[in-house]
Amino acid sequence: MDSEQQSATLSALARVRENAFFVLELDIACSRMEMERQAQKLLAMLELGLSSATTYSTPVGTGIRDADKVRLASARLRDPEKRLEEELWARIAKAEKPPPDPDADLGLEDLPKKPRPDAPWPNALPAFGWGRK
């Protein structure tokens, strides 16, 4: 995957990660007043440096929250046309995870993983005299 394509995939994921409803941790049916209150609350928490305000969870992993992100999210939700789009992307279902198998936990996850034999050989070009190590 080249860097251009990688950034296209990342930006598609960022669209979900930075969805205004996830940033503000709001339900899509929330009112304008609820949204304003939540934004003010988060900005105050961020100003106080509370660690609980710096992260939020999304279907694509944890996002990092800062004051600019909160202001941008509330601006998007104030505009009804943009809010409609945000609502569409926020209607995401949670993937079902299979229940953990209690017998499966043998502590193997904690063992250091052996590198795959077909892992890249970064020194290949220098080894043949092409380029510098």
Partner: peptide, 29 residues
Amino acid sequence: IEDEEENLPTVSDSEGPLAKALALHVALL
């Protein structure tokens, strides 16, 4: 040694077809 098989997650229709499609989409990405 085969790669761990990577599959799309199971998503129920209970929250509607759009919610399912979006969940599959982010898993795909």
